[in-house]
Amino acid sequence: MLTAAPAVILVLLVLGAALIMVGLQSLGLMPVFGEPQLSLNAWADSTSLLESAGVSVYIATLSTVLSAGLGLLIAVYALTAGRGGRLVAAVSAATIPIPHLVASGAIGLLLADAGFLARLFGMPEGFPQLVATQWWTAVILEFAWKESAFVALVILGSISRSAMALSETASTLGASAWQRFCHVILPLARLPLVVSGLVVFVYTLGSYESPWLLGPLAPEPLSVRAVRLFGSTQLSARPEAMATALTSVVIAVLAIAVGLLLVRRSGDRS
């Protein structure tokens, strides 16, 4: 327990202080200019805050589901398909270092109306619109692309040794591929899958680059709203930016609490 102290203290100190600052600013108690004055103005526009929260949760949920599914697929393939599996695992891991800023740019070049994919198909009339759509298609695909590799890495990192050995044993005992997946790999993968899914959810919830580059102008997710208001040339917008950021924090904390319950349960079961 004691070895955890330095990390815990650092986190509590930095996060605690930062959140206090954000909170104070959202309440007008730390204006960039002028006299501090307690005010709930920044929280008054609750419809727009809630709408942004809805968009953020929508993007994060779909991105998490897709990333978890694809990540599990990549991991299982890597564990079961021999040399081909190792190749897929290696290539997938190689995409991990790509920053979201770069990845968003790449997905934009690929999926835009006149992007590489449309050009490959000869720019057909009916080519679907993917970038800046009301369904946030390109944004979710970008998250799914980046984060499925992350999910696969976490699963492989934590279970590859045990899964390989147990899988071999099961195989010699006559288990089919499907049985090995269901009864060996899936139970082992449950914990890392839940943990990485949780990480993906909260990450995509707070992520800015992708929805900003690939999303429509309105409605905006919390991250885009916060950054827009923060960069606004109106001094009064800053408390609103802080309120938006805090909303995002609250949702993410709730998600983590729920996620930890799931982790405990899947931990108990396995």
Binding site: L2, A5, P6, I9, L10, L12, L13, G16
Partner: peptide, 19 residues
């Protein structure tokens, strides 16, 4: 949170940071 940590003498070393 800072008062919390000063309970354990081991954490003294981190005092400057907390300070």
């Amino acid at each position: 949170m800072i008062r919390h940590t000063s309970r354990t003498p081991r954490l003294r070393r981190l005092g400057p940071l907390a300070g």
